[in-house]
């Protein structure tokens, strides 16, 4: 009787060992795929691991990793779905989940939602996470044109933000270009581009418009109405292009200013899970 029980226990132990070894192999495959930037395949492997994991916490961790891989693939909806599952399995993943949710919201161009998630992290216990979230929050607010709040977010994080606040101040000191003024100036070919500092584009615009206006007057004088119609069609395109270009150049200028400032604030920061700890989620930040 005793031998029977011992054999049974041995069988169970061997089975569990084999199961955990298989899990290890699958885990390694998923991690390798993730490291090869095959995020879609990695996400599927993590989902497979989650479905097979016997413990809720492990399931949650694998779902979080699947969500992370979908986020890297810019599949925000699937990423959020995986995070929902992860958080229902292990509510402690809600904090690191907010990081991914913020990223997903930005991928969907929903900056209000992203602001909410990053804003919820600035009081967390992890200093690196706080700095990451604060910088992201500042970048979102700069994009909204709310420079004071952006600076406040950086200062509230308590990180060494002197260079970051300097970048924000430099942005504040600069002036945006008015697209309306750019468009109005574009009535004079090239002047709209010149207003936003695009002098080479302005010159090309002026030359093309001048040539075609000359062509129009010349063909009209010679009463060559067929050629006049063709040249007029092209001139109309160039002329409307001058006005559109004046407006677009101003928008480009403003966008460039924001992008430069945001790049300074965000830097090359990123985060990734510590693969050695998987399926426990421990994030490693790089600034």
């Amino acid at each position: 009787m005793r031998l029977k029980y011992l054999t049974l226990i041995l069988c169970v132990a061997l089975q569990l060992l084999a199961g955990s070894f298989a899990g290890e192999v699958d885990k390694r495959l998923a991690i390798e795929l993730a490291n090869e930037n095959d995020h879609h395949a990695a996400a599927i492997e993590f989902r497979r691991l989650a479905l097979g994991a016997p413990v809720q916490e492990r399931k949650g961790g694998y779902y979080w990793l699947a969500g992370y891989q979908y986020a890297l693939e810019e599949n925000a909806d699937m990423s959020d779905e995986m995070l929902d599952r992860a958080e229902s399995m292990d509510p402690q993943l809600a904090i690191s989940g907010s990081l991914l949710r913020g990223r997903n919201a930005l991928a969907r161009n929903n900056s209000d939602e992203a602001e909410f998630y990053y804003g919820s992290l600035v009081n967390s216990a992890d200093e690196e996470m706080v700095e990451y979230a604060a910088r992201k929050l500042a970048a979102i607010r700069i994009r909204h044109g709310d420079v004071d709040s952006a600076r406040a977010a950086i200062e509230a994080a308590g990180a060494d933000g002197s260079s970051l606040t300097a970048s924000i101040e430099e942005y504040r000191r600069g002036d945006d270009k008015s697209p309306a003024v750019g468009g109005l100036l574009g009535i004079v070919p090239g002047l709209g581009h010149a207003y936003s500092g695009e002098y080479a584009n302005a010159l090309r615009c002026l030359i093309l418009n001048s040539l075609f206006i000359y062509g129009m007057t010349h063909t009209a004088e010679k009463e060559q109405w067929g050629a006049f119609a063709v040249i007029s069609f092209f001139e109309l395109t160039w002329y409307s292009g001058s006005i559109y270009g004046g407006i677009d150049a101003a928008h480009r200028y403003n966008r460039r200013r924001i992008t430069d400032c945001v790049d300074q604030v965000e830097g090359d920061m990123d985060y990734s899970p510590d693969w050695e700890m998987v399926p426990t989620i421990r994030l490693e930040f790089v600034f």
């Binding site: 581009h193 695009e198 080479a200 584009n201 090309r204 615009c205 093309l208 109309l236 395109t237 160039w238 409307s240 292009g241 001058s242 006005i243 559109y244 270009g245 677009d248």
Partner: peptide, 19 residues
């Protein structure tokens, strides 16, 4: 039809993009 001025603007900008 706004595609026409958008394309004209692209022609003005193309040499700068390459440069």
């Amino acid at each position: 039809l706004l595609g026409f001025p958008i394309q004209a603007d692209r022609f003005f900008r193309e040499p700068s993009i390459v440069q």
